[in-house]
Design a protein around this nucleic acid. Structure first.
Length: 874
RNA sequence: GGGAGCAUAGCUCAGCUGGUUCAGAGCAUCUGCCUUACAAGCAGAGGGUCACAGGUUCGAAUCCUGUUGCUCCCA
């Protein structure tokens, strides 16, 4: 046997073999049937993305949940797919074309889209192939893409529906503008970073006076668009200026001096210039105080005609130039260094420009209400629940959602414009024409044109849990699989995606999209830095899997990642995972090796019988804990529970307890029980380590073609004998005592010894045979008297004696007993101080009191034993 | 500026409704072992003022208040 089964587990060979087997036998395929469904939809990765460590963590957890559910007999359905990721993908295609010397502006929309599709077909789906290496048990027949024909249609239909309901409108609003990508961004696509800036102090002359007022700004170029100066009404320094006017330097425009609580008196000079067209807060001030709006910037970040000066220059060049010009005109008071936060585009990394722009919006106020309520009342549960707070905070202050993007790659907005600018929202040009004519607007096929903009990527992904089941056009699948069960995702996209799926779920299905949301942490490197391409600190997941095996990496990922906490990734975690795999492998080799040593004539030894009984109870009681860990999404604890059950209980204790002495055979009863236990262990291990467990499962017993541990049953807990569990605890104390004694006294393990036990209560002999087996003890005798000429050690309930095999150091022994006495006396003192406290005795619950009294009597007995030992030595 | 969270062993974290000397786990470290499944292993050991200061209580890592430090989200 050992010739066939290698001594080290080799993951590379087995993984591909079993993944093909699983695919071949369609073990992950799901179609609606009479079973309870268990559904998970994958957070669709970018279609042209490659697998990174974040995906590894996220998909390992999903696979774990799905595999367990499948074993529990549920109809497990994990839907994979990809997202068209409009900005990210378009940027990549633009970049690729540029490298080939083609500018996007030289192409027509259709030509560009052709390139984009080509790119998508070439690079799309790589990531899905990589997920298979990880062992992901998705139903690949269901793979969806957010720009699939049907999916595209559902996005467009949703737009039209919301428009008809009055939830979508077109309007001029302050939006985040990306001057590099030339597109609007949603608030969530703006990343704020601290940068070193300069705070320019600029003085404005007061009209009709020689007095100046000094404002402070980090963006002096926007002076060109100033339409007011603002101070805090409570600010004594400026009270005399309320209602007066100031002159904007260089452009010499007269603007009002207004007062508003918004101004912070402590910041800068306590005086603010107001540029409503180029700052969110200034825009609000402008609306409130009815200020003029001067849009002094072009979409590419250069100064427009309205700016009067520096027309056509870039905003950052102007910033330098205007500082000089203000200096020359005598208006620049001083420049301070300042660290402030500046918004950058998530995609192009350009400094975002707040800009007034005509865009499409979703009115979120009403739509979001059920989504808030159903999370707050736990219809949808968040794990960990702390994320409910930020969710509520966001939902209660929700802003309208800017959904138009000035891009080509994506779902084109179904709006049609007449030459005069009037528009109709309709699915097709024909319908649009009809709608125009119904309103008496004379247009024809050639005069109307479709909106150029596409929709925000998230406007398609928010339909994901419905659209993957064709839920907008057919009930068959969606009625069965929806609501899905668990969503596993990163907290970073709680607002982008999770919140909006919940909104769409209630709007279009009248029901929650998923019952539980498990938020994973961010995978960071050992030093706590985010993994990124530029830092080069992210290992390649495929390399890791080659090195440690997919199972090893899976275990490594889960070892230290409690829900919502960041994971400080270190290869040594995968090493630990690989070592665990090897440990299981060797345990299996040991058990399997006994198969040919089974001797039908042998009867089961008492030690083995006890061991089997104990292991069964231990397994069953641990399974209860394990199921509870899963139910509470304590994933890493579920792993640790399993890890200890296998490594400590099964390998370190059980296998040693039943291991026959060298050269002897194994009885059939114990062998069969062991195979049975190992099979159950493989069951609870399978979600963590699918490949290894499948390999061993097939070795362990003859299996029929097509059978798999993937669809074997998750073990069911039964019969927990709590007596044997507590007897085991006592036994392990004794065994550790003997091992220590042997070590201290240099009594080799091979030397068989006697043991005498003096118990202060009815002795627990349950594990005596096991103790003899584990510690090479010839006989255990019980005695009321104290034997002489022995080493000894003491547990809570008994005293153990091993006869001397050589001279002993009396002083050394006395020292040890003294130390133990000191400890137990201290313990007793702390217990008695409680018991002597009348208020404790009167107030503490009976159970607590009783346990204290038990402690008292146990330690009194122990002290007596130790004192006697000491006396005996003297 | 607004909101949320965290602080426990060298590291990563448990510690659920206050109650075993409650101060735990895994890893790392140290010591001894190549013992016939496994050195990717076995047997042991050390290591912490539970951030700080108060308070509530018979009893606080746990509940309350303040302080300090850190993180995240939002503007």
């Amino acid at each position: 046997m050992s010739a066939e089964i290698p001594s080290k587990y080799d993951p590379i060979q087995t993984e591909d073999k079993w993944y093909s087997y699983w695919m071949e036998h369609k073990l992950f395929k799901s179609v609606p049937d009479s079973r309870e469904p268990y559904t998970v939809v994958i957070p669709p990765p970018n279609v042209t993305g490659v697998l990174h460590m974040g995906h590894m963590l996220n998909n390992t957890i999903q696979d774990l949940l799905v595999r367990r559910a499948r074993m529990q007999g549920k109809n497990a359905c994990w839907v994979p797919g990809t997202d068209h990721a409009s900005i990210a993908t378009e940027a990549k295609v633009v970049q690729k074309l540029r490298a080939e010397g083609v500018k996007k502006s030289d192409l027509s929309r259709d030509q560009f889209l052709e390139h984009a599709w080509e790119w998508t077909h070439k690079h799309g789906g790589i990531i899905l192939e990589q997920l298979k290496k990880l062992g992901a048990s998705c139903d690949w027949d269901r793979t969806r893409f957010t720009m699939d024909e049907k999916y595209y249609e559902s996005v467009v239909d949703t737009f039209i529906d919301l428009y008809k309901k009055g939830k979508i409108y077109r309007g001029e609003r302050m939006i985040n503008w990306d001057p590099a990508a030339l597109t609007a961004l949603s608030d969530e696509e703006v990343i704020y970073r601290e940068v070193n800036s300069k705070l320019y102090h600029v003085r404005y002359r007061i009209v009709g006076s020689d007095e100046f007022i000094t404002i402070a700004t980090t963006r002096p170029e926007t002076i060109l668009g100033d339409t007011a100066v603002c101070v805090n009404p409570k600010d004594e320094r400026y009270k005399h200026l309320h209602g007066k006017r100031a002159i904007v330097p260089l452009v010499n425009r007269e603007v009002p001096i207004i007062a508003d609580e918004y101004v912070e008196m402590e910041f800068g000079t306590g005086c603010l210039k107001v540029t409503p067209a180029h700052d969110m807060n200034d825009f609000m001030l402008g609306e409130k105080h009815k200020l003029e709006i001067i849009n002094m910037m072009n979409d590419n970040g250069t100064i427009s005609e309205a700016g009067q000066l520096y027309v056509g220059m870039d905003r950052f060049d102007v910033r330098k130039q205007i500082a000089e010009d203000l200096q020359n005109s005598g208006n620049l008071v001083k420049i301070e260094e300042l660290i402030n936060k500046v918004g950058f585009s998530e995609r192009s990394d350009a400094v975002v420009e707040p800009r007034l722009s005509l865009q499409w919006f979703v009115d979120m106020k009403e739509l979001s209400k059920p989504a808030l309520d159903h999370v707050m009342n736990d219809d949808i549960k968040f794990f960990p629940s702390k994320f409910k707070n930020s969710y509520r905070n966001w939902m209660e202050n929700i802003k309208d959602w800017c959904i138009s993007r000035q891009l080509w790659w994506g779902h084109r907005i179904p709006a049609w414009y007449a030459p005069d600018g009037q528009f109709e929202v309709a699915k097709t040009k024909e319908e649009a024409l009809q709608q125009f004519s119904q309103k008496g607007i004379a247009v024809d096929v050639n005069s109307i044109r479709q909106e150029e903009d596409v929709l925000d990527t998230w406007f398609s992904s928010w339909l994901w849990p419905i659209s993957v089941f064709d839920g907008f056009y057919s009930d068959e699948e969606v009625d069965y699989y929806y609501p899905t069960n668990d969503l596993v995702t990163a907290p970073e996209i709680m607002f982008f995606w999770v919140a909006r799926m919940i909104i769409a779920g209630y709007e279009y299905r009248g029901d929650l999209p998923f019952r539980n949301v498990y938020y994973t942490g961010i995978v960071r490197d050992k030093q706590g830095r985010k993994m990124s391409k530029s830092l080069g600190n992210s290992p390649d997941p495929l390399d890791l899997m080659k090195k440690f095996g997919a199972d090893g990496v899976r275990v490594g990922m889960l070892l230290s990642s409690p829900a919502g906490n960041d994971l400080l990734f270190d290869e040594s975690l995968c090493e630990q995972g690989r070592n665990f795999a090897n440990k299981i492998w060797n345990a299996f080799r040991l058990v399997k090796g006994w198969e040919e040593k089974v001797d039908k004539n042998l009867t089961q030894s008492q030690a083995a019988k006890t061991a089997v009984n104990w292991m069964q109870s231990k397994f069953n009681s641990t399974l209860v804990t394990l199921n509870d860990d899963y139910d509470k999404f304590r994933i890493n604890e579920a792993l640790m529970t399993t890890y200890k059950l296998v490594w400590d209980d099964f390998c370190a204790w059980y296998l040693e307890m039943i291991k026959p002495p060298f050269g002897q055979g194994m009885d059939a009863t114990t062998y069969e029980a062991s195979v049975d236990i190992l099979e159950k262990l493989l069951g609870v291990l399978h979600p963590f380590m699918p490949f290894l467990t499948e390999e061993i499962w097939h070795y362990l017993k003859p299996r029929t073609e097509g059978s798999s541990i993937c669809t074997a049953s998750w073990p069911v807990s039964s019969n927990v004998d709590s007596n044997i569990l507590s007897s085991f605890e006592k036994m392990s104390e004794v065994v550790i005592g003997i091992r220590n004694l042997r070590k201290e006294k240099n009594i080799p393990n091979k030397e068989s010894i006697e043991m005498i036990v003096r118990a202060n209560q009815e002795p627990d002999k349950e594990f005596d045979a096991v103790i003899q087996h584990l510690c090479n003890i010839q006989s255990i005798t019980y005695s009321a008297d104290k034997p002489t000429g022995c080493f000894s050690f003491v547990t809570a309930t008994a005293e153990y004696f091993i006869p001397f095999t050589q001279q002993i150091d009396v002083e050394e022994e006395k020292k040890k007993i003294d130390a133990e006495l000191t400890y137990v006396r201290g313990f007793l003192k702390s217990v008695e101080s409680k018991l002597n406290n009348e208020r404790f005795v009167n107030n503490a619950p009976t159970a607590v009191l009783e346990s204290e009294r038990k402690k008292q009597s146990d330690s009194l007995a122990k002290i007596q034993m130790l004192e006697e030992q000491l006396k005996a030595l003297n």
